[in-house]
Structure formats: C-alpha cells, structure tokens
Write a protein that binds this DNA or RNA. Structure first.
Lengths: 143, 143
DNA sequence: GACTTTTCCCCACATTTATCCACAACTCCC
DNA sequence: GGGAGTTGTGGATAAATGTGGGGAAAAGTC
C-alpha cells in the first residue's frame, strides 16, 4: 500500500525520482498513465495488466467506449525504473498534467499519483474548503 | 502490449517510422488497414490472421457488419518493416486517414493506430470533453 | 525498345535516448 | 558524533533512433 506525500523535481531530461519507500512495491516495471483531475497515475505493471485487460474488452462497436479505452491505453506508457529509482515522463504526459519542475508524488492506496506542485496545492486547498460538507457524506458511508 | 503515444512524420516517399518499442512485438511482417474513426490500424501478421478469421465469420445478412468486414479486409495491405523499422503507407490509406506529414502513432493494447496529428488532437479533446463521467466508468472497472 | 516513373535497398548524419558515474545532503547505527 | 550507507540531483559519454537522400532494380508508358 502506497502512503504519504513527497516532493521531487523533474530534471531537464524528464527524469523523476520515485520515493524510495515505493520502489520495492512498484517493482522495476511500472506504467504511467493519464489520471483524473490532471494528475498522472503510476501503477505496478501487474496492477496495470489487470486494468488494461478490462479496457481491451470494452465493446469496439460503441463509439464512446472505444474512445475511452483508446485514450486510457494510448495515454499509458511503460516507465521502467532505472538503477537509481527514476522514471522517464514522456512529453505528452508532462503536458497533460502540466508538470513543471517541482512535482508532488502522493501514495493513494494501490496507486501513486504525480502532480504539479502548484496544481496539488490548489487542489488541496480547494478540497479542504469543502471538507465540512464532505463530513456529512462520509457519515452516510458509515465512516 | 502496445502502449503510448508517439509522433512521427511521413516523408515524401510515404515512409513512416514505427516506434522502436513496438518493433519487436510487431515482427517484420505487419498489416495496415482501414480503422475506425478515420485512423489506420496496424497489426502484427499473427494478430491479423486471427482478426481476419473473425471478420470473415461475421453474419453476412447484416448490412453494417458486412460493410465493416469488407472495409477492413479489402483495405488491408502487407506493410513489412524495412531495416530501419519503417513501413510504406499506400496512397489510398493515406487518403482515407487524411494523413499529412505529421502523424501520431498510438499503441492500443493489441493494435497500433496511425493518426493524422491534427485529427488526433481534435479527437482527443472531443473525447475528453464528453468524459465528465469518466470517474464513474473508472470505478466500474475498479481503477 | 527507349524512356519515365515508382519501388526498394543502401547509407549518412544530427538528435535523442540510455547507461554510467560523481557529488552533496541526509539518515541510521553503533 | 563520526562513519557507512542511502538518497536526490546533475552531468558525461556511448549507443540507438528518426529523418532525409542517392542510386539500382522493377514496373509501367508511349
């Protein structure tokens, strides 16, 4: 299980270090892909395989399902860790998440999220503001 | 598994480089054909054989299924990779996908898609727009 | 048959990518 | 607190890759 919030920087060669704590659980082979709210998701290859399998089985005949699978699969990219535990972030994903130099890496249960630092701060304050209302909903969920 | 999004250019001899990452899985013998949404599909010969078999078994009675099968089978063309990993894109397929110089090659699980760059960008933003309920679908898939 | 056009195989070159290593900051342990 | 190991960052060098042409062989045209 991935937990915690770390800040790292992407160098000019698009390399991004993964927190040492996550490396063992990730393994050497990992996959980055488009995530929700303009961040990137990072999965271990095993986790990803399960997902990709499901995506590939979506009906090809339906235009919207086709588009969805296409974006998720084409958006993904193998991101193997080098000797020092870094991955390479492809240009199009860097752009998608509007990643600058400073990034935040957050562990969220079975996946790792990669955020631009500013976007992360903005998102956090935004969510924190709505935290009061959320408590109500959590109660409904029995938390 | 083919993953990722790459941009390449077709030269004036209709040659198109295939991403190095895909070459091994593709093999030397490949097949290009008309795809859905005005892009081209590129399969390894083995995958193509399986697909062609399925297409040939589509119910002959249904007009749309028949049309689809016809489009894909008649549009297919062997596209062997040369020494440097490039294929030749026939004129009629270039025209079908309205390929300009700049093209995008996308890996979508068991196939590779070839898009005109502009068409690809347009398609992507279009899908993303209609993806407000993306989170819902992801949840269904257990992402 | 002569000529033009197309297709295919060869190579050159600039750029990108991958691999390796260096160094400073930090942590942990004795 | 000092030393050994780890970790984050940056850079150097070597290999691989993308792109563009040249020219021989094949195909088509008049």
């Amino acid at each position: 299980m991935f937990l915690g919030e770390f800040s790292y920087s992407i160098d000019e060669k698009k390399r991004l270090a993964i927190p040492a704590k996550f490396r063992q659980a990730l393994g050497k082979k990992a996959v980055v892909t488009r995530g929700l709210d303009q961040c990137l998701f990072l999965y271990s290859f095993k986790e990803w395989e399960v997902l990709a399998e499901k995506l590939s089985k979506l009906p090809l005949a339906q235009a919207d399902a086709r588009g969805f699978a296409r974006l998720m699969l084409a958006g993904a990219m193998e991101a193997d860790l080098d000797k020092l535990g870094r991955i390479l972030v492809p240009d199009y994903l860097k752009e998608y998440a509007s990643l600058g130099k400073k990034t935040v890496i957050a562990g969220v249960y079975n996946r790792i999220e990669i955020w631009d630092e500013q976007k992360w701060e903005a998102y956090k304050t935004n969510i924190e503001k709505g935290m009061g209302d959320m408590a109500e909903r959590l109660k409904e969920l029995g938390i």
